[in-house]
Design a protein around this nucleic acid. Structure first.
Lengths: 294, 294
DNA sequence: AAATTTATCTGACTAAAGTCAGCTATCATG
DNA sequence: CATGATAGCTGACTTTAGTCAGATAAATTT
């Protein structure tokens, strides 16, 4: 009776109701659900018609008609893709953008209502939602290079620092640590990689370079919701690829003794321990890996 | 960009797809979704038409037509409620039961597929799903008296023992503890209360009586997914009501020093500490509360 | 016993969603 | 430049879902 599938069904029932209520709140603007969803999927920046068809898995005829409907309402305009004039791109008009913003507000209001019902434990609920969403969409986690000063990168770093502060016996204060400059984490010197799942950052790793043949791995972090998915391995492998492309032949890193899963990972990925190569106050172990040619 | 509402929306997107896929899997049996859902809601034991209307929030006309459809397929029969012949009750036929079982298997298969995709962390995913489902349906948590030997009660007790084993400095072995007999936890001597949310037990408390005017509170447990909802208070208040109804005037309990939130709760609910009244090996604190007349 | 309420059903509708064959414009390829 | 593939559109459908005003029969109230 309290089997895994019974629990999953209970989850489905609970969430179906919530989603249904959300859908109904989308209905308050005199537009059927399909059209509202389409408009929101087009978004403020516009979208390709083909991408929309895949995203919403709509029949091409149905999508066409919905687009015509939105166009007649004056909410969007469509134009051929200049690169391939068979394709078309849908853009919201000013009115369309206002309408999208109105739907966003409805959705935010529901989210706020949901969170305010949580006397406490709002953080726990959000964390649980992240974990479920990540588990359901794990096949769509992408790893990409971003600038270390974007909001996504800052979010990762803040979460990383917060976790170090919780785990290190001595706490963690980033100002006393050897914090790399953004310059060394961008091409052509280095790189900053982030794992994203539908917009939410789930992990990061920084490759710090200085133009020489030796680089450094820093800031490897995986969101609690995404642990156990092999994401750390994926980020480290990708960092090695980036390093090779930048002409780096040897990678180093330092780490704290409390980060046992990271240390185990470094061993598994072929790193070996070396004497201290810096004076990082929070470091207890130093590792090195020579990169093979390809 | 990584606001609470953005995270909730991401959750909604991820889950909408999963629910959509589940719905589509319901479509593989040549029956529209509405009819399939209705059949599954009727369930193997049958259901009242009015209850179905409320549950699925269907228009009375639409429900009627769907029921006729299932009847023509030979999957259900409807008959008037003997107690009030205006009402009708729908029962599945043998074929209907087989069809319901087939839908259950589809749903279980999806659940299995989901869990097997989790390399590890299946438990964490289930726990997160429980937490989300509980948060979304918290207004529908019921507290009721059940027999201490039902599967629901056993589930609660096993979870309770497992948690004690994790938390007590000395571990916990139920065979060395003063385990009450089921006899003392059932009317007319005592009572066993469980908090249920859509079938999942979220908490319990036992009232152990021996026929005298002094009873004992035992086995207060709240599922991790349900903490912070005020459920412990609700269970304790209900246990007091049960005690009064059984003629108990004074309640006692013992507890371990590591269960700090429970100890704080006992103080808030008007219990006061007394000298040891038993030889429970895991107890550090003993409490008493005199029950007022009503 | 008559009037009212309640639970369900029926018929006649509308709206929304989805399907499919065939059309047109554009691009890619030999 | 002819051929075939691709992306999207249009028209003509069907299915599913949902609405609503009575009708009917049983229960309840007056």
């Amino acid at each position: 009776m309290i089997s895994a599938s019974a629990r999953i069904r209970r989850f489905n029932r609970a969430v179906t109701q919530e989603i249904g209520a959300l859908d109904n709140s989308y209905l308050g603007r005199g537009r059927p659900l399909g059209a509202a969803r389409l408009l929101c999927s087009i978004g403020p920046d516009g979208a390709e018609v083909g991408a929309l068809r895949d995203l919403l898995s709509l029949d091409s005829g149905l999508l066409s008609r919905l687009l015509r409907g939105l166009e007649e309402e004056g909410l969007i305009v469509t134009e051929p893709d200049p690169a391939d004039r068979r394709r078309r791109i849908a853009h919201p008009t000013a009115r369309g953008k206002r309408e999208i913003a109105a739907y966003d507000r409805l959705s935010d209001a529901r989210a706020d209502a949901l969170m305010s019902r949580q006397s406490r434990g709002a953080d726990a609920l959000l964390a649980a939602m992240d974990l479920v969403a990540t588990a359901l969409t794990r096949h769509r986690i992408t790893v990409s290079r971003i600038d270390p000063e974007t909001p996504e990168a800052r979010y990762c770093l803040n979460e990383y620092y917060a976790e170090l502060a919780r785990r290190f016996e001595t706490g963690f204060d980033v100002t006393t640590s050897l914090d790399p400059e953004a310059l060394n984490l961008r091409p052509p010197l280095g790189s900053f990689l982030v794992a994203l799942s539908d917009g939410l950052p789930l992990g990061c790793v920084a490759l710090k370079g200085n133009g020489s043949e030796t680089g450094e791995i820093k800031r490897l972090w995986i969101a609690p919701a995404a642990r156990g998915l092999g994401l750390a391995r994926r980020l480290m492998k990708r960092a090695e690829t980036e390093a090779r492309a930048l002409g780096i032949r040897t990678l180093r890193l330092d780490t704290n003794r409390t980060l046992t899963e990271a240390i185990a990972l470094y061993h598994r990925l072929g790193w070996h321990e070396i004497p201290a190569f810096n004076t990082e106050p929070y470091a207890h172990h130093w590792f090195e890996k020579r990169l093979s040619e390809h």
